[in-house]
């Protein structure tokens, strides 16, 4: 009676109801990605090309938003100077959760052509914000960008909403017990030395 068991315990890993709800929510988030209108350097030109008619990013449900409050992901398209890095961090933090970030081009990935001698260039945007998908290229082909969007959608649709809580709770418990053990060790040590 797998089905009934699953219904009995909807929170469980193979819960059918919440599993379906989770799928639905993930589907919604994966298929409707609004990106922040934001470009940095030469890669942004290619990013514009992706949005234009020939490549048409809107096919994937990606609509430009000019306010970070309404965006779902940010595309770091270009050279990140140290001055801009602070702004990018602010912008990223203004995007409401769940939020994602795509690093486009060598410059954003690791400083690109400036990784050795660029005293003013951040050597990789992942030092400032967490990146979900890295696109190699200088600049990446528009098709490569579209593939990255598909990859991001894949990642979003694999995400866990309900099981996550359980997993996080378990991890918390483990962490707590570890901490406790450490504490006990510490106390024992202290006692010994006294």
């Amino acid at each position: 009676m797998g089905l009934l068991n699953a219904l009995d315990n909807p929170i469980n890993a193979d819960g059918i109801i919440l599993g379906k709800v989770e799928d639905l929510f993930n589907w919604g988030r994966a298929k409707s990605n609004w990106f922040l209108q934001f470009g940095l350097a030469c890669c942004a030109i290619e990013f514009m090309a992706v949005n234009a008619s020939h490549f048409d990013l809107m096919r994937f449900g990606n609509i430009p938003r000019s306010s970070p409050r309404q965006a779902d992901y940010i595309v770091i398209s270009g050279t990140v100077t140290l001055k801009m890095a602070e702004r990018i961090k602010i912008l990223f933090e203004q995007i409401p959760e769940p939020r994602y970030a795509i690093s486009m081009g060598s410059c954003a990935n690791s400083g690109g052509p400036y990784w050795q001698h660029g005293y003013n260039v951040l050597k990789g945007i992942d030092r400032v914000i967490p990146i979900d998908v890295y696109i190699p290229g200088c600049p990446p082909r528009p098709e490569a960008f579209e593939q990255a969007v598909l990859k991001l959608q894949e990642k979003i649709s694999m995400e866990e909403i309900f099981k996550k809580r359980e997993r996080v709770a378990q991890e918390d418990k483990m962490l707590e017990s570890m901490l406790k053990a450490e504490e006990n060790n510490f106390i024992e040590n202290v006692n010994k030395h006294i």
Partner: peptide, 8 residues
Amino acid sequence: AEVFKLLQ
């Protein structure tokens, strides 16, 4: 899909 997204 957008409605489901905005809900979350």
